[in-house]
């Protein structure tokens, strides 16, 4: 039964122009605590742009985003304190070791007792023996796992994930999904972009399909199956 959950992120009539082209025309979305929203759409539909706007890296041309009832334009720090992100790029300094990278970002976030948390996260992601190695030598799978370790250390409330599964092997995908399930249980909110719909279908609570710069989310009801989703997606 759908129960009323606390609203975390509200996106209202969001639009964005890149150059002369309007990439986002009107995005409305509603993300609640403990929910994972699956964001689908063709390449170039504007999914990654939406992520960047939510994270505050890019300012929207119009519309409003509120995080826990507060306009993120007026109070960006509030969102940044609770934000975790995985994107196409590794987002780590290649010349620093895995541990130094995590320590640097946890210092900026003022994580309490960071060293123990980093130790634990590296252990859980199986990167402990690589802790003292420069990140530039990491494979893409290891980079993704290091990103997951970063999320564990930072302990965010809102996750923005842009293709987090690419480069992960089967075990790691399993591990990451377990992490997401646990994260949801704790009341975390997730927005997930992926082309690997089959892996994430189980986890998701809401579905949003983006097309021509417009997107709106709807609930995944109990009767809604994976085939329904594929059908809905292909109809667009």
């Amino acid at each position: 039964m759908p129960q009323t959950k606390t609203q975390v992120l509200k996106i209202d009539k969001l639009s964005k122009d890149f150059g002369y082209r309007q990439v986002l025309k009107g995005v409305d979305m509603d993300l609640a605590a403990g929910e994972l929203t699956l964001l689908l759409g063709k390449n170039g539909a504007g999914k990654s742009t939406l992520m960047k706007i939510i994270s505050g890296l890019v300012l929207p041309s119009g519309g409003k985003i509120s995080f826990k009832g507060q306009d993120t334009k007026k109070n960006p720090q509030n969102l940044r304190k609770s934000l975790g992100m995985i994107s196409h790029q590794t987002m780590f300094y290649g010349d620093l070791t895995a541990e130094e990278n995590l320590l640097f970002f946890s210092k900026l976030k003022k994580v309490s007792s960071p060293r123990e948390k980093i130790e634990g996260a590296l252990h859980r992601t199986g990167l402990r023996k690589f802790a003292q190695i420069p990140v530039k030598t990491f494979s893409s799978g290891m980079n993704k796992r290091l990103n997951i370790a970063k999320l564990m250390v930072m302990d965010p409330e809102l996750l923005l994930l842009d293709e987090p599964y690419t480069g992960l092997d089967y075990d790691s995908i399993e591990f990451f999904n377990d992490y997401l399930a646990e994260f949801k249980k704790k009341g975390g909110t997730v927005l997930l972009i992926t082309h690997q719909i089959d892996i994430s279908f189980e986890l998701c609570d809401k579905i949003a399909i983006m097309q021509n710069g417009v997107a709106a989310s709807h609930m995944k009801t109990a009767s809604y199956t994976y085939d329904d989703l594929i059908e809905e997606y292909q109809k667009r």
């Binding site: 992100m85 590794t90 780590f92 290649g94």
Partner: peptide, 12 residues
């Protein structure tokens, strides 16, 4: 390199 700037900018 590696979009570290983004990482820095989303830090609080």
């Amino acid at each position: 390199e590696n979009a570290c700037m983004e990482s820095l900018l989303i830090s609080p």
